[in-house]
Structure formats: structure tokens, C-alpha cells
Computed example of a mutant assay.
Amino acid sequence: MKLNNAQCTLVTENLRLVHKVIHDKVHSPQQLGMFSYDDLFQIGCIGLCKAAATDKGGVFSTYAYRLIWNEICSALEYASVRTTREALTDPDIMGQSVTKAALPEIDYIDLNTLLDKAEHEVSGVTAKGIRALRLKARGYTSREIGQIMGAPANHVTAWVAKARAYLKTCKEFHSFV
């Protein structure tokens, strides 16, 4: 990404915003995952540069704050999926026997039926969110789900948030979990 002089100045003047986003949004060291603070700062700087490159006027700090946080979220989500995939393919982990006490018995058929019922009770964005949640459970990223469902990744993220909010209010789902 190539920035002009005005955009470079905008980035330089707002570098503190990256620290503020990390400080405000990343609440515990466990959220950092495989990243150090410096890694997150660099990722946030990429978001800040994207904000400067696509700024159309208005309050820059508000716009940049959101883009910085989106960039960090994407990186944390990717790291989480990557770590899960690596753990599932690690022969040392796969070779270990897992006791029944370590993993609670889950009735996947009931969960699937419950999600089917919830999906039929709702419509629009929430129903799409439930479909996206199922794909996320299989390890797909928002970008991959967006390609499958023909929508941008940020739409998928919004759908999933809507579906989660709905499922939190659903008594049957809450008692199942």
C-alpha cells in the first residue's frame, strides 16, 4: 500500500490510537494468543494505514479506531483457527488417548436439531448467522464463509454476532449448553 505525504502525516499523528485500541479492547494476556504486544501494535498500524488510505473525510480517529480493531480481530481470529487446526493435526496430540471425563458427552444430533429449529424460527440476517456459525464451528474463517455465502467477511461477522445474540436469548439453547 502506497501512501501519499498527507496520508503518512495522518498515520504519524495518530499512532497513539493503535495503543489505545489495544489497551481498550484486549483485556487479558490470554487474548493475545500467539501475538506479543508489539505484534498487535504492528497489526494495528496496518489498520491505521488502511484507514488513512481510504479516509473520505469526517472524524478520522473514529474511523481509524474501527479499522484498527477490525485488523487486530482478524489477526486474532486467524491465529485461533490456525492454532486449532495445528492442534488437530499434531500427531502427539492425536496419539494421546482422551478419557471420557476429559471431554463431556455432547449429543450432536440434539444440538443440530436445536440449531435447525432456531434457524427456522428466525429469518434474514440471524438465519444467515446461524448458518455461518455452523461453518465457523468447522474451522472456516469469516472470509471463507463470505466466499461460500457470496458476501463480504464483515457481513459474516455481523451475521454471527446477531445469531449469537439470538441464541443467548433462546431458552432451549441456553439450557442445552
Rank of each mutant, 00 (worst) to 15 (best):
R138I: 08
S80D: 08
T12R: 05
E71I: 10
G33T: 06
Q42G: 02
Q147H: 05
T84R: 08
A153E: 04
H120Y: 13
T12W: 01
T83Y: 05
S36V: 03
L48W: 08
R16W: 02
S28D: 06
L15A: 03
R138V: 09
R131G: 10
G58R: 04
S36I: 00
R66E: 15
N154Q: 04
A102M: 12
E119I: 11
I46S: 12
L48C: 14
C73M: 01
S80W: 04
A165Y: 03
N112E: 13
R138W: 00
S175L: 14
T113V: 06
I130C: 04
V177M: 11
A165H: 02
L133M: 14
I46Y: 13
C170H: 10
G139F: 02
I148G: 00
K136W: 00
T113K: 09
L48A: 08
G57L: 06
L10K: 07
K50M: 11
V59S: 07
W159M: 07
C8S: 09
K128S: 13
L10D: 10
N112Y: 08
C73W: 03
S123T: 15
E71A: 15
K117C: 12
L40E: 00
G95T: 09
S74L: 00
I72V: 15
D39I: 02
F41A: 05
V59A: 11
I22N: 03
D90T: 08
W159V: 04
C8L: 14
G44A: 00
L133S: 10
A151Y: 10
Q30V: 10
D92F: 14
K56T: 15
S61M: 09
G58S: 13
C49I: 01
I130P: 09
H19A: 10
S28V: 01
Y140W: 06
H120A: 15
K100R: 12
D38Y: 04
I22T: 01
R131Y: 06
L3T: 00
H155M: 11
T157W: 02
C45M: 13
V177Y: 13
K20Y: 13
G150F: 01
F176G: 06
K128M: 10
E144K: 07
R164W: 00
F35C: 08
Y108A: 13
A79C: 03
L10F: 06
E172C: 05
V160A: 02
H27G: 04
M1A: 13
L15M: 07
K162Q: 08
S142E: 08
Q42K: 05
S74R: 10
T99Q: 05
Y166I: 08
L15T: 09
H120L: 15
R85I: 00
Q31C: 07
A53Y: 13
H174A: 12
I109H: 12
E144V: 11
I106S: 02
R85H: 07
I72Y: 04
